[in-house]
Amino acid sequence: MEANSTPVSATSVGLRYGLLTGLISVIISFGLFALSMEQSPLRYVSFLVLIGGMVMAMRHFKENNYGFMSFGQGVGIGTLISAVVGALSAIFTYFYMNIIDPDVVGRMTEKMRADMEARGGMSDEQIDQAMALSGKFMNGPIMIAVVLFTSIFFGLLIALVVSAFIKHSKPEFE
């Protein structure tokens, strides 16, 4: 393994791979929205993209830092990647739902209502209350904050696991 003469920082790697991973996630989201498949199981492909981006970023960091990466550096890189991906996804989703295709919110709420009715166990009033509450979360700054927070939270959990496998700490007494 040939090491680079100038090590890279965790921040630069996290930002670079966060932007690349975020761009891929936005493209996938656009495809799902455009095909009206935003509620299909294919939406979980974004998690695989996020995991792949973290693995590639941590390997790049380790290769360019003499083969070493601590657990904390890996978690930091992964969390930064998920924050950048979350920010890009939140901004894209906001613009898509409010400017490009405002009907997507209606399609999503109709599907949620149909799912609640099919499951049973809820009265019409309870379903109406749940729909009113979810409508508040699908518009505006609350939606952006929720997307960003959930992206960072799940990204942190994924980063903990990925970093545990990829880390290679420097020996303490060398």
Rank of each mutant, 00 (worst) to 15 (best):
N98C: 08
T6P: 07
S5I: 11
T6H: 14
F92A: 01
V13S: 05
P171R: 08
F173M: 11
I91D: 08
A3D: 12
F149G: 03
S70D: 07
R113E: 15
P7W: 11
R59M: 04
T93R: 05
A34G: 08
A164C: 03
I28Q: 11
G72D: 04
R16V: 07
F149I: 14
A114Y: 09
Q126T: 05
S89H: 04
P41G: 12
K167I: 06
P171H: 12
T79F: 04
A159S: 12
D128H: 03
V84I: 15
G106K: 07
H168L: 01
G155I: 06
Q129L: 11
L20H: 06
P7T: 04
D103V: 05
E174S: 13
M138C: 02
Y17H: 02
I81Q: 02
S163R: 02
A34Q: 15
E38K: 10
F137M: 13
G106D: 02
Q129K: 11
I100E: 01
G155E: 09
L48W: 06
Q39C: 04
G18A: 11
R43N: 01
G86M: 12
D101R: 14
G121W: 03
T21M: 07
T11R: 04
G14T: 08
G121V: 00
A3P: 05
V8M: 06
M112D: 08
V84F: 13
